[in-house]
Protein backbone atom coordinates (compact mmCIF):
# COMPACT_ATOMS: atom_id res chain seq x y z
CA UNK A 1 0.00 0.00 0.00
CA UNK A 2 1.34 3.43 -0.94
CA UNK A 3 1.20 6.27 1.53
CA UNK A 4 0.75 9.65 -0.14
CA UNK A 5 1.35 12.76 1.94
CA UNK A 6 0.82 15.91 -0.12
CA UNK A 7 1.70 19.15 1.66
CA UNK A 8 -0.47 21.44 -0.46
CA UNK A 9 -4.07 21.38 -1.57
CA UNK A 10 -3.03 21.44 -5.23
CA UNK A 11 -0.79 18.42 -4.74
CA UNK A 12 -3.59 16.66 -2.87
CA UNK A 13 -6.01 17.24 -5.75
CA UNK A 14 -3.40 16.05 -8.23
CA UNK A 15 -2.79 12.88 -6.22
CA UNK A 16 -6.53 12.32 -5.94
CA UNK A 17 -6.84 12.52 -9.74
CA UNK A 18 -3.85 10.30 -10.41
CA UNK A 19 -4.72 7.56 -7.93
CA UNK A 20 -8.32 6.46 -8.18
CA UNK A 21 -7.40 3.50 -5.95
CA UNK A 22 -6.40 5.81 -3.09
CA UNK A 23 -8.55 6.31 -0.02
CA UNK A 24 -8.40 9.77 1.49
CA UNK A 25 -7.63 9.80 5.19
CA UNK A 26 -8.04 12.69 7.63
CA UNK A 27 -8.15 11.79 11.33
CA UNK A 28 -8.24 8.11 10.46
CA UNK A 29 -10.89 7.25 13.02
CA UNK A 30 -13.00 5.46 10.38
CA UNK A 31 -10.43 4.49 7.76
CA UNK A 32 -7.95 2.93 10.18
CA UNK A 33 -10.70 0.84 11.76
CA UNK A 34 -11.60 -0.48 8.32
CA UNK A 35 -7.96 -1.27 7.58
CA UNK A 36 -7.38 -2.92 10.92
CA UNK A 37 -10.48 -5.06 10.55
CA UNK A 38 -9.36 -5.96 7.03
CA UNK A 39 -12.52 -4.56 5.49
CA UNK A 40 -10.55 -2.48 3.01
CA UNK A 41 -7.29 -2.96 1.15
CA UNK A 42 -6.84 0.27 -0.84
CA UNK A 43 -3.89 0.63 -3.18
CA UNK A 44 -2.92 3.84 -1.44
CA UNK A 45 -3.77 6.11 1.46
CA UNK A 46 -3.98 9.79 0.66
CA UNK A 47 -3.18 11.52 3.94
CA UNK A 48 -4.57 15.05 4.09
CA UNK A 49 -3.05 15.80 7.47
CA UNK A 50 -0.27 17.98 6.04
CA UNK A 51 -2.55 20.23 4.05
CA UNK A 52 -2.66 22.92 6.70
CA UNK A 53 -5.39 24.98 5.07
CA UNK A 54 -7.88 22.21 5.73
CA UNK A 55 -7.48 22.74 9.45
CA UNK A 56 -8.68 26.35 9.41
CA UNK A 57 -12.09 27.89 9.84
CA UNK A 58 -13.33 31.43 9.25
CA UNK A 59 -16.56 33.41 9.34
CA UNK A 60 -17.55 34.70 5.92
CA UNK A 61 -20.10 37.44 5.55
CA UNK A 62 -23.17 37.23 3.41
CA UNK A 63 -22.42 35.05 0.48
CA UNK A 64 -22.95 31.34 1.18
CA UNK A 65 -25.76 31.01 3.68
CA UNK A 66 -29.30 30.22 2.70
CA UNK A 67 -30.65 33.25 4.46
CA UNK A 68 -27.90 35.58 3.30
CA UNK A 69 -26.42 35.84 6.79
CA UNK A 70 -22.84 35.06 7.62
CA UNK A 71 -21.40 31.59 7.23
CA UNK A 72 -18.69 29.58 8.88
CA UNK A 73 -16.31 28.13 6.34
CA UNK A 74 -15.16 25.05 8.21
CA UNK A 75 -12.08 23.41 6.76
CA UNK A 76 -12.60 19.69 6.18
CA UNK A 77 -9.73 18.86 8.54
CA UNK A 78 -10.82 20.81 11.63
CA UNK A 79 -11.06 18.23 14.44
CA UNK A 80 -14.16 17.91 16.61
CA UNK A 81 -12.28 19.10 19.67
CA UNK A 82 -11.74 22.49 18.04
CA UNK A 83 -15.34 22.73 16.94
CA UNK A 84 -16.34 22.23 20.57
CA UNK A 85 -13.82 24.81 21.80
CA UNK A 86 -14.17 27.43 19.07
CA UNK A 87 -17.58 27.23 17.46
CA UNK A 88 -20.13 26.60 20.20
CA UNK A 89 -21.69 30.03 19.67
CA UNK A 90 -21.74 30.08 15.86
CA UNK A 91 -22.59 26.43 15.24
CA UNK A 92 -24.23 25.19 18.44
CA UNK A 93 -25.85 22.12 16.87
CA UNK A 94 -22.64 20.90 15.32
CA UNK A 95 -20.72 21.60 18.53
CA UNK A 96 -23.26 19.58 20.54
CA UNK A 97 -22.92 16.72 18.08
CA UNK A 98 -19.13 16.97 18.25
CA UNK A 99 -19.30 16.51 22.01
CA UNK A 100 -20.91 13.11 21.54
CA UNK A 101 -18.25 11.78 19.18
CA UNK A 102 -16.22 8.89 20.63
CA UNK A 103 -13.64 9.63 23.29
CA UNK A 104 -11.42 12.69 23.85
CA UNK A 105 -8.74 11.02 21.73
CA UNK A 106 -11.19 10.44 18.88
CA UNK A 107 -12.43 14.03 19.11
CA UNK A 108 -8.85 15.23 18.80
CA UNK A 109 -8.41 13.28 15.57
CA UNK A 110 -11.81 13.00 13.92
CA UNK A 111 -13.02 15.66 11.47
CA UNK A 112 -16.26 16.69 9.83
CA UNK A 113 -14.61 16.20 6.43
CA UNK A 114 -13.79 12.63 7.34
CA UNK A 115 -17.31 12.07 8.64
CA UNK A 116 -18.71 13.30 5.30
CA UNK A 117 -16.23 11.16 3.39
CA UNK A 118 -17.37 8.03 5.23
CA UNK A 119 -21.00 9.15 4.85
CA UNK A 120 -22.18 6.67 7.46
CA UNK A 121 -25.86 6.96 8.28
CA UNK A 122 -24.68 7.13 11.91
CA UNK A 123 -22.20 9.99 11.37
CA UNK A 124 -22.70 12.40 14.24
CA UNK A 125 -21.98 15.57 12.25
CA UNK A 126 -24.58 14.93 9.57
CA UNK A 127 -27.88 15.73 11.30
CA UNK A 128 -26.82 19.21 12.46
CA UNK A 129 -25.40 19.99 9.01
CA UNK A 130 -28.75 19.03 7.47
CA UNK A 131 -30.69 21.03 10.02
CA UNK A 132 -28.52 24.11 9.54
CA UNK A 133 -28.71 23.99 5.74
CA UNK A 134 -24.98 23.45 5.25
CA UNK A 135 -23.28 23.21 1.88
CA UNK A 136 -20.31 20.98 1.18
CA UNK A 137 -17.55 22.42 -0.97
CA UNK A 138 -15.70 19.84 -3.02
CA UNK A 139 -12.97 20.27 -5.56
CA UNK A 140 -11.15 18.44 -8.32
CA UNK A 141 -8.02 19.36 -10.23
CA UNK A 142 -9.86 19.02 -13.54
CA UNK A 143 -13.13 20.86 -12.86
CA UNK A 144 -12.41 23.07 -9.89
CA UNK A 145 -14.86 23.75 -7.11
CA UNK A 146 -18.51 22.80 -6.80
CA UNK A 147 -20.93 23.22 -3.91
CA UNK A 148 -23.27 20.42 -2.87
CA UNK A 149 -26.09 21.09 -0.39
CA UNK A 150 -25.93 18.65 2.50
CA UNK A 151 -29.40 17.44 1.52
CA UNK A 152 -27.99 16.20 -1.79
CA UNK A 153 -24.67 14.92 -0.47
CA UNK A 154 -25.69 11.55 0.98
CA UNK A 155 -26.62 9.18 -1.83
CA UNK A 156 -26.78 5.78 -0.10
CA UNK A 157 -25.44 3.72 2.77
CA UNK A 158 -21.89 4.98 3.18
CA UNK A 159 -22.06 6.61 -0.26
CA UNK A 160 -21.87 10.28 -1.10
CA UNK A 161 -21.98 12.62 -4.09
CA UNK A 162 -18.21 12.93 -4.33
CA UNK A 163 -16.76 12.12 -7.78
CA UNK A 164 -13.73 9.84 -7.93
CA UNK A 165 -11.30 12.70 -8.46
CA UNK A 166 -12.79 15.06 -5.89
CA UNK A 167 -11.83 15.88 -2.32
CA UNK A 168 -13.88 17.65 0.33
CA UNK A 169 -12.42 21.09 0.90
CA UNK A 170 -14.76 22.64 3.43
CA UNK A 171 -18.25 22.79 4.82
CA UNK A 172 -20.13 26.05 4.65
CA UNK A 173 -22.47 26.27 7.61
CA UNK A 174 -24.71 29.30 8.16
CA UNK A 175 -24.04 30.93 11.52
CA UNK A 176 -26.98 30.03 13.73
CA UNK A 177 -29.74 32.62 13.59
CA UNK A 178 -31.63 30.85 16.34
CA UNK A 179 -31.41 27.99 18.80
CA UNK A 180 -30.17 24.58 17.76
CA UNK A 181 -30.32 21.23 19.51
CA UNK A 182 -28.80 17.83 18.96
CA UNK A 183 -29.78 14.58 20.70
CA UNK A 184 -28.23 11.16 20.32
CA UNK A 185 -29.32 7.86 21.78
CA UNK A 186 -26.79 5.15 22.53
CA UNK A 187 -26.92 2.18 24.85
CA UNK A 188 -24.24 3.51 27.13
CA UNK A 189 -23.50 6.96 28.41
CA UNK A 190 -20.33 7.71 26.45
CA UNK A 191 -18.28 6.46 23.52
CA UNK A 192 -21.14 5.00 21.60
CA UNK A 193 -22.31 4.93 18.01
CA UNK A 194 -25.75 6.45 17.59
CA UNK A 195 -28.71 4.10 17.76
CA UNK A 196 -30.64 7.13 16.58
CA UNK A 197 -29.96 10.85 16.49
CA UNK A 198 -31.84 14.04 15.83
CA UNK A 199 -30.87 17.64 15.19
CA UNK A 200 -33.11 20.65 14.90
CA UNK A 201 -32.48 24.30 14.17
CA UNK A 202 -34.84 27.22 14.47
CA UNK A 203 -34.36 29.84 11.76
CA UNK A 204 -36.37 32.80 13.10
CA UNK A 205 -34.84 35.05 10.42
CA UNK A 206 -36.81 33.19 7.79
CA UNK A 207 -39.39 31.61 10.09
CA UNK A 208 -38.21 28.14 9.20
CA UNK A 209 -37.33 24.97 11.04
CA UNK A 210 -34.47 22.66 10.08
CA UNK A 211 -34.14 18.98 10.98
CA UNK A 212 -31.68 16.15 10.59
CA UNK A 213 -32.16 12.46 11.35
CA UNK A 214 -29.27 10.08 11.99
CA UNK A 215 -29.01 6.29 12.16
CA UNK A 216 -32.60 5.77 11.17
CA UNK A 217 -32.52 5.55 7.39
CA UNK A 218 -30.04 4.44 4.70
CA UNK A 219 -28.66 7.97 4.77
CA UNK A 220 -28.83 10.91 7.12
CA UNK A 221 -31.93 12.79 6.06
CA UNK A 222 -34.20 15.70 6.87
CA UNK A 223 -37.81 15.45 7.90
CA UNK A 224 -39.21 18.09 5.49
CA UNK A 225 -42.84 17.50 6.25
CA UNK A 226 -42.18 17.90 9.99
CA UNK A 227 -40.19 21.07 9.33
CA UNK A 228 -42.98 22.64 7.29
CA UNK A 229 -45.60 21.52 9.77
CA UNK A 230 -43.88 23.07 12.77
CA UNK A 231 -42.89 26.26 10.96
CA UNK A 232 -46.42 26.61 9.61
CA UNK A 233 -48.06 26.08 12.98
CA UNK A 234 -45.72 28.57 14.62
CA UNK A 235 -46.51 31.04 11.89
CA UNK A 236 -50.25 30.65 11.98
CA UNK A 237 -50.32 30.96 15.77
CA UNK A 238 -48.12 34.04 15.57
CA UNK A 239 -45.65 32.43 17.89
CA UNK A 240 -42.54 33.59 16.03
CA UNK A 241 -43.51 37.12 16.97
CA UNK A 242 -45.21 36.55 20.31
CA UNK A 243 -42.62 34.08 21.55
CA UNK A 244 -45.42 32.41 23.44
CA UNK A 245 -45.20 28.95 24.87
CA UNK A 246 -44.90 26.02 22.52
CA UNK A 247 -48.07 23.94 22.97
CA UNK A 248 -47.15 20.46 24.16
CA UNK A 249 -49.45 18.95 21.54
CA UNK A 250 -47.54 20.76 18.83
CA UNK A 251 -44.18 19.47 20.01
CA UNK A 252 -45.65 15.98 20.21
CA UNK A 253 -47.12 16.18 16.71
CA UNK A 254 -43.78 17.43 15.43
CA UNK A 255 -42.06 14.44 17.05
CA UNK A 256 -44.48 12.04 15.41
CA UNK A 257 -43.85 13.59 12.02
CA UNK A 258 -40.10 13.34 12.48
CA UNK A 259 -40.45 9.65 13.39
CA UNK A 260 -42.60 9.13 10.31
CA UNK A 261 -39.84 10.53 8.13
CA UNK A 262 -37.39 7.80 9.20
CA UNK A 263 -36.91 4.43 7.50
CA UNK A 264 -35.07 2.54 10.22
CA UNK A 265 -33.94 -1.07 10.27
CA UNK A 266 -33.46 -3.70 12.98
CA UNK A 267 -29.80 -4.31 13.65
CA UNK A 268 -27.47 -5.29 16.45
CA UNK A 269 -27.61 -1.78 17.90
CA UNK A 270 -31.36 -1.41 18.10
CA UNK A 271 -34.75 -2.22 16.67
CA UNK A 272 -36.50 -0.26 13.95
CA UNK A 273 -39.49 0.30 16.21
CA UNK A 274 -37.31 1.68 19.00
CA UNK A 275 -35.46 3.96 16.59
CA UNK A 276 -38.72 5.43 15.39
CA UNK A 277 -40.02 5.79 18.92
CA UNK A 278 -36.84 7.41 20.19
CA UNK A 279 -36.90 9.90 17.32
CA UNK A 280 -40.37 11.02 18.26
CA UNK A 281 -39.24 11.58 21.87
CA UNK A 282 -35.99 13.32 20.93
CA UNK A 283 -37.70 15.56 18.37
CA UNK A 284 -40.38 16.57 20.85
CA UNK A 285 -37.86 17.37 23.53
CA UNK A 286 -35.41 19.10 21.18
CA UNK A 287 -38.13 21.32 19.76
CA UNK A 288 -39.29 22.17 23.28
CA UNK A 289 -35.77 23.07 24.41
CA UNK A 290 -35.04 25.07 21.29
CA UNK A 291 -38.27 27.00 21.61
CA UNK A 292 -37.57 27.72 25.29
CA UNK A 293 -34.20 29.11 24.25
CA UNK A 294 -35.87 31.23 21.58
CA UNK A 295 -38.35 32.59 24.08
CA UNK A 296 -35.51 33.61 26.38
CA UNK A 297 -33.30 34.88 23.59
CA UNK A 298 -32.46 38.56 24.27
CA UNK A 299 -32.02 39.14 20.53
CA UNK A 300 -35.52 40.05 19.41
CA UNK A 301 -34.60 39.41 15.82
CA UNK A 302 -37.87 38.15 14.43
Amino acid sequence: MDFLQPTSWADALAARAERPDAVAIAGGTDVMVDLNFDRRRPGALLDLGRVTGLREWAVEDGAGGVGGGSTVRLGAGVPYARIIDDLGAQLPGLAMAARTVGSPQIRNRGTVGGNLGSASPAGDAHPPLLAAGAVIEVESAARGTRRIPATEFFTGVKRNALAGDELIAAVLVPVAAGPQQYCKVGTRNAMVIAVSAFACALHPDRKAVGTGIGSAAPTPRRAPEAEEFLAGELESAGLWESRGELPDGLARAFGERVAAAASPIDDVRGSAAYRRHSLSVMARRAATWAWAQYRNDPRKAA
Partner: peptide, 16 residues
Protein backbone atom coordinates in the same frame (compact mmCIF):
# COMPACT_ATOMS: atom_id res chain seq x y z
CA UNK B 1 -25.75 16.39 31.34
CA UNK B 2 -23.15 13.82 32.35
CA UNK B 3 -25.18 13.00 35.46
CA UNK B 4 -28.30 12.13 33.46
CA UNK B 5 -29.30 9.05 31.46
CA UNK B 6 -27.93 9.56 27.95
CA UNK B 7 -25.26 11.95 29.26
CA UNK B 8 -23.83 14.31 26.61
CA UNK B 9 -26.11 12.62 24.11
CA UNK B 10 -28.40 15.40 25.38
CA UNK B 11 -31.49 13.23 25.34
CA UNK B 12 -33.06 14.56 28.51
CA UNK B 13 -32.77 17.55 30.80
CA UNK B 14 -34.79 15.68 33.39
CA UNK B 15 -37.87 14.81 31.32
CA UNK B 16 -39.02 11.24 31.81
Amino acid sequence: LRSLPGAVGNTTHGEG
